[in-house]
C-alpha cells in the first residue's frame, strides 16, 4: 500500500519551550491509526501540523508529506487545494463544530459545492440538495430532510457530531483526522459515533488518524496505535500487540487503568 501521510522528525516549539520533539510516523492509504496520550502530550498540535494550521507563533521543523505534497514550509495558498481533497477533520467540541447561524443542510452543501468545483463540475441546486440528503443519511441522521433545515442549536450534540462527520465525508478526503470526536458525548452516543466513523472510513477506503486519551476507544477504531507522552512518541505497534503486551511502562499503566475500569464496570450493578 502507498504511503498517505509521512511525518519525519517533527518538532514544534514556541519561543519559550519545545512542545513536540522529534516524532516520526506514517499512515498508509486506507489505514486506521490511533494517536493516544495524556492531556497536553501534543496530540492536537501534531494533528494541526499535519493540516498546516499551527499558529504562526510556533516554529515547526522536520518534514510532513501528505498525499505526496510537502506541508511544512509550504505557503498557505498552496495548501488550500491540498486540504479538502486530501484531508478533512472532525473535532472534539460538537457545539463549535458547526456555524451556529447556518442550517445544517447549507453547511454540508457548501462543502459539496466546493468539492465539486475542485473536480471541475458545477452541479445544480437539486443535485447538491440530493447529495446533501444522501450524506446526512450516510451518517445515520434520523429524518435527514428535517435535520437539513435545522440550525445547530436545534439538534443534539450527537447529531451535531454526525453533521460534522457528514461535512468531512463531503470532502471525500483520503485521510480523515478525528481529534477526540467523542469525548464530549455520553457513552451510548460515543459508541454509536465510533461505529459510524469506523464503517464510513472502511467503506470509503479512507485513512484515519484517530486521536484520543482513551485506550479502549482507540482499540475500537484503530488497527495500529501511536503512544505519545510529553511531546514525544514513546511506543507504536498494532493495537493487539501494543495493548496485549505493552513494552513501555507508561503504556502498561494505560492498559492496567483501562482493565481496572472494565473490571469496575463488570462489578457495577
Amino acid at each position: 500500500m502507498s504511503t498517505l501521510l509521512s511525518v519525519e522528525d517533527l518538532q514544534i516549539r514556541t519561543a519559550a519551550r519545545p512542545l513536540v520533539s522529534g516524532i516520526s510516523f506514517s499512515i498508509a492509504a486506507g489505514e486506521r491509526v490511533g494517536l493516544i496520550g495524556e492531556s497536553g502530550s501534543g496530540k492536537s498540535l501534531t494533528a494541526l501540523a499535519v493540516l498546516g494550521l499551527l499558529p504562526d507563533t510556533m516554529r515547526v521543523t522536520g518534514s510532513i508529506t501528505l498525499d505526496g505534497h510537502p506541508v511544512i514550509g509550504a505557503r498557505d495558498r498552496d495548501l488550500v487545494p491540498l486540504r479538502g481533497r486530501s484531508v478533512a477533520a472532525v473535532f472534539q467540541e460538537p457545539m463549535t463544530a458547526l456555524d451556529p447561524l447556518m442550517r445544517i443542510g447549507d453547511q454540508v452543501a457548501e462543502v459539496v459545492r466546493r468539492r465539486a468545483l475542485r473536480d471541475g463540475t458545477k452541479p445544480g441546486r437539486a443535485e447538491i440538495a440530493s447529495r446533501v440528503l444522501a450524506l446526512l443519511e450516510r451518517v445515520a441522521l434520523p429524518e435527514p430532510a428535517r435535520i437539513a433545515r435545522a440550525f445547530p442549536h436545534e439538534i443534539s450534540g450527537g447529531q451535531r457530531q454526525r453533521g460534522a462527520i457528514a461535512m468531512a465525508l463531503a470532502c471525500r478526503p483520503k485521510l480523515l483526522i478525528a481529534d477526540e470526536p467523542t469525548t464530549a458525548l455520553d457513552v451510548t452516543t460515543q459508541a454509536e459515533i465510533l461505529k459510524l466513523l469506523e464503517t464510513v472510513v472502511r467503506d470509503e477506503g479512507m485513512g484515519l488518524l484517530f486521536i484520543s486519551h482513551d485506550l479502549p476507544v482507540v482499540a475500537t477504531v484503530a488497527e495500529r496505535a501511536l503512544v505519545m507522552r510529553h511531546g514525544a512518541l514513546i511506543e507504536e505497534g498494532p493495537v493487539g500487540t501494543l495493548f496485549g503486551r505493552p513494552s513501555h511502562p507508561y503504556t502498561e499503566g494505560l492498559v492496567a487503568a483501562a482493565r481496572a475500569f472494565d473490571a469496575a464496570l463488570e462489578f457495577a450493578p
Binding site: 493540516l51 494550521l53 488550500v80 477533520a89 463549535t96 463544530a97 468539492r115 475542485r118 468531512a168
Partner: peptide
C-alpha cells in the same frame, strides 16, 4: 472549530 474545519476543507 467550524472555521478550522472550513479551512481544512479548503
Amino acid at each position: 472549530d467550524y472555521i478550522t474545519a472550513a479551512r481544512i476543507s479548503g
